[in-house]
Design a protein around this nucleic acid. Sequence first.
DNA 1: TTGTAGGCGTTATCAC
DNA 2: GTGATAACGCCTACAA
Lengths: 340, 340
Amino acid sequence: MPGKPKKTTIKDIAEMAGVSPATVSRVLSNPSVVSRPRQEAVRRAIKDLSYRPSPIARGLSTGRLPCLHVLISDIRNPFYAEMARGVEDVARNNGYAVVFGNTDDSPERELQYLAHTNELRFAGVIMMSAVGKVDLKKALRELNRPIVLANRLVPGMEADAVILNNERGAYRATKYLIDLGHRKICHLAGLRYSSASAERQRGFVRAVKEAGLDIPQGGVFSGDLRVESGETIGRRLVKEGLKCTAIFAANDLMAIGLISAFESEGIGVPEDVSVIGFDDIGYASLPRVQLTTVKQPSYEMGRAALKMLLERVRGESSAFRTIRFEPELVERGTCGVPRS
Amino acid sequence: MPGKPKKTTIKDIAEMAGVSPATVSRVLSNPSVVSRPRQEAVRRAIKDLSYRPSPIARGLSTGRLPCLHVLISDIRNPFYAEMARGVEDVARNNGYAVVFGNTDDSPERELQYLAHTNELRFAGVIMMSAVGKVDLKKALRELNRPIVLANRLVPGMEADAVILNNERGAYRATKYLIDLGHRKICHLAGLRYSSASAERQRGFVRAVKEAGLDIPQGGVFSGDLRVESGETIGRRLVKEGLKCTAIFAANDLMAIGLISAFESEGIGVPEDVSVIGFDDIGYASLPRVQLTTVKQPSYEMGRAALKMLLERVRGESSAFRTIRFEPELVERGTCGVPRS
DNA sequence: TTGTAGGCGTTATCAC
DNA sequence: GTGATAACGCCTACAA
C-alpha cells in the first residue's frame, strides 16, 4: 500500500520544530516549563501540520479518556432528556464526549455500567439515577474517579451533587392543594429507593401534618415514574371509589397517567379531582394538557452537573459541594377547589 | 505507596498460564489457532485473575474503540429519544458504549462530531440527523468507518440505511384527509434538507394530485420540526385567514404546536380544521391529545440500525442494504369531516 | 502452533 | 529547560 496517509504524530511535530517529542508534549500539557522560542516553534509546527494529539494514546498513558459517563433511568422520560441535553451541550463545548447509559432504575445495570466506566477509563461519571443500594456507594468509591450525583442522592455518601429541593417542592404542591380547600389528599409516590421520591414524599407528609389533616387510609401509593403506572393506579383508585379530592403525583408522567385513567373513567379533572405533578416537562404546558405542576430547571441542572464534573476532572480539588436548585409552582388547569 | 492494586494485564495471564502474551492475545481474538491445552490453561488463568483486556490499549493498537457514535437532531424530541433507546439497548447487550451527539440539524455540528468520531477512533457511526450537504458525504466517506444512515438518507450516497417509507406514510395521511372529504389541504413541511421531510412532502403532493385537487396557494410551509414552529405557523395561518380545512404536519411535535395555536385562537380541532401528524410519539395517544398520526416503529428502527452497524463493525462485509419500515395510519381524534 | 520483538502515540522519570 | 527512555497494555508480523 503506497499512499497510506499516516496520521501525523508527536514525533513529526518534534522533528519539524527541531525539538524532542517530550518538549512537544510539554507545550501541550504544561507550557510554562518550556522556553519561549521553542514553544513558538512547536506551536507553529502543530498548526502547520494541523496536528491533534491522539486521545487514545493519551488515555493509555494517563488512564483517562476524554469521555464522560452519564447514567440515567430512561432517556425517553422528558425530564431526563432535558437534563441529558444540558449535559451534552456543555460537554461538547469542552471537548468531552458523552456516553449515555439507561439503567431503568436497576441496581444491577448501574453496576454493570460502572464496570464499563472503569474499563474504558472514562474521565468521570454523572449519576442521575442512583438507586440507593449499599454496593452502589462502594462501587462509586472504588471507581476512583470524579463523580457527580445529579437528581438523586446516595444515602450516606459524600459527593458533589446537583439536586432540587424536592422536599420543599412537594411541600408547596401539597400546600397549594390544601389552600385550595382540599382535605383528603393522596400521594402517588415514586421509586422506593430514589432519594428524590423519598424527599417528595416527606414534603407531602409535612404539609399534610402541618395543616392538621390526616392522610387518607392507604392514601400513598407507589409507582415507577412512568405514564403507565399512573394509569394503572388511577384506574385502581376509581374502582375502589375515590377516597380523595386531590392527588399529588411524584412526577408529571405519572400525573398524566392518572389524568388519562380518570378521564377515561368519566372522572373529570379538575372538576371531580385535582391532580398536580412534578418536573414540568414540556408537555405539561400544552393547551390540551395544562398540567399544574412543580417546575425543576432540568436543563440548567444538567449543565450545572457537568460543570461540576469538569472541575473535578480538571483536578480542581476542594470540598464536596451540593448545588441545590429551587422548585417553582406552576399553576395551570388541573387543580381546582374541591367539589362541595 | 505499598498496596497499589496494579491491574492485571495480559502478561500476568501469560505467566500464570505458562505461555507467551501473544498466545493469550490469540485465545482472545482468534482462538482457533491455539492448541486445546494451552487454550484451556489461558482461559482458566483469565477466569482466576478475572482478567479483562484493556479497550484502550486495544484501541491504540487496532485503531478502534468499542464505542459507537450516534448523531441525532435533539434528544428532547421523543421520536429521537425512542430510537436512541433502541440503539442503546442493543449496544449495551453487545458490549459497546454509545456516545450521543445532538446536532440541532446543523451541518457544522455534524462535521464537528465526525471529527470527534475520527479522533477518538469510535468503531462506527449511526447518523440519524443527516442534513444533506455535499461535504457530509465526503466527511462520511473519509471517516473510513462503518456508517448506518437512519431516519434520513444522504442524497447520492450509497450506504447501509434504516428508514421509514416516508412517501407512503405521507401519501396515506393525505389520502385519509381527502377521503374524509377535505378539498383544501395544507402541509407543514419539515427541514428543507432532510430526506425524510422531502419524501413526506412528495407523498403529500402525490396524494393531492392524484385526487385531482390543487394545493392551496402558498399552502406548503416549512418548519423546523419543533413544537414552537408549529405554534408560530399556526398563529400565522389563523391571522391570514385559514385557507384550508385540514393540515398534514411533517411530524407530531409540529402538529401539536399547530393544535395549540389553533385552540388558543378559538379554532377547534377537528371541528374547524383537521390536523394529522407523523411519528406517533408517546404523547399523541394521551386521552387529552388523541392526535391522529402516522406511526413509525422508532424503537425498532433504532434497534435495526444498531444491528446493521454491528455487523459491519464486526467485519461482515457485503453489499449495502436498506431496511425500510412501513408506516401505519393511526386514527384518533384530530381529524374529522370538513365543515360544510 | 508458538514465541520474540516492534509498533501504536503519549506521558512521565530520569539524568544532563 | 531539555532530551533520552521507559512505561501504558495490547496486537501482529516474522521467525522458529
